[in-house]
């Protein structure tokens, strides 16, 4: 009985230490994002890494999601003769949900993992200590440029994903399901509201922040050689993915909740 209580106590304390450390890390990171000096060179390099090099994987994800959405909603809606809604369903699903969530998850796998691995390796090979001894704050030099670039580039990626996804739906709609091209396009615009896109881009910015934050945080506190870096990489991806799904619900509720 006391063993059980002790175990629960330990887990609870571990949880508290962890949240406390993450909060402190987040606060320090954000303070360095908004406070000069800035490193434009490093920010630009991260923006290219996150924005440009993620385009293929995000684009592929988006086009197939758009295509399957059109196909699924067509066959599903045919049961109650609502096939006409396909274009609207595709564009609303992409901009509000699938664009940000799928792009976020793909980028979490790509960028979150590589950030945790890179910063984690720098930690265990004492490169982060070396930064400090060279009068350079690791938060300013490593963490802030990554978080800033992630928060700025994810909305850009999601906007592209939205467009490509809608285009995927259009291809299936017009070439497979025999919609009239002009009708499909006008149906796409008909019920789309600015808030649909804005909510999706807001999600993207938050996801970009979370992905880079978890990548940097897990890398920064990794220890114990190659094994520690491996664990940090896994944790970065898993925690970012879970946080994306949780915050996706919260932001949706904030924008559209009754």
């Amino acid at each position: 009985m006391t063993d059980l209580l002790a175990a629960i106590g330990r887990i609870f304390l571990g949880f508290l230490t962890h949240t406390g450390r993450l909060s402190a890390f987040t606060a320090t990171a954000v303070s360095h994002v908004v406070r000069p000096p800035f490193y434009p060179r490093l920010i630009l390099r991260q923006m290219i890494e996150i924005g440009y090099f993620s385009l293929p994987v995000v684009g592929l994800t988006a086009i197939f999601s758009g295509m399957v959405l059109a196909l699924q909603s067509y066959t599903g809606f045919a049961r109650f003769s609502a096939e006409g809604a396909v274009a609207t369903v595709v564009v609303l699903s992409m901009t509000r949900e699938l664009g940000p969530v799928l792009a976020g998850l793909m980028v979490a796998g790509r960028i979150g993992a590589s950030m945790a691995a890179e910063i984690g390796t720098m930690r265990v090979t004492e490169q982060i200590d070396a930064l400090t001894t060279l009068s350079t704050n690791p938060f300013k030099y490593l963490v802030a440029p990554r978080i800033l670039a992630g928060t700025l580039m994810l909305p850009f990626l999601v906007l592209i994903a939205d467009i490509i996804g809608v285009f995927g739906g259009y291809i299936v709609g017009v070439y497979k399901l025999d919609f009239n091209s002009a009708t499909y396009i006008s149906r796409t615009w008909e019920f789309l509201e600015p808030l649909d896109v804005i909510s999706g881009l807001t999600k993207a910015a938050v996801f970009g922040f979370l992905i880079t934050l978890m990548g940097c945080y897990n890398g920064y506190y990794s220890r114990g050689g190659a094994q520690g870096v491996g664990a940090a990489t896994t944790n970065a991806v898993v925690s970012a993915a879970i946080m994306i799904l949780v915050f996706n619900y919260i932001i949706t509720a904030m924008f559209f909740g009754k």
């Binding site: 890179e118 720098m122 090979t125 004492e126 200590d129 070396a130 001894t133 009068s135 350079t136």
Partner: peptide
Amino acid sequence: MRKFGMLFQGGALFDSLKVWENVAFGLIQ
């Protein structure tokens, strides 16, 4: 820290930077 120079046990060179950028790091940053 500006008073200090440190040679780390494992070298701790920045592997994403060229050799000269490593050496010049304290001067530039």
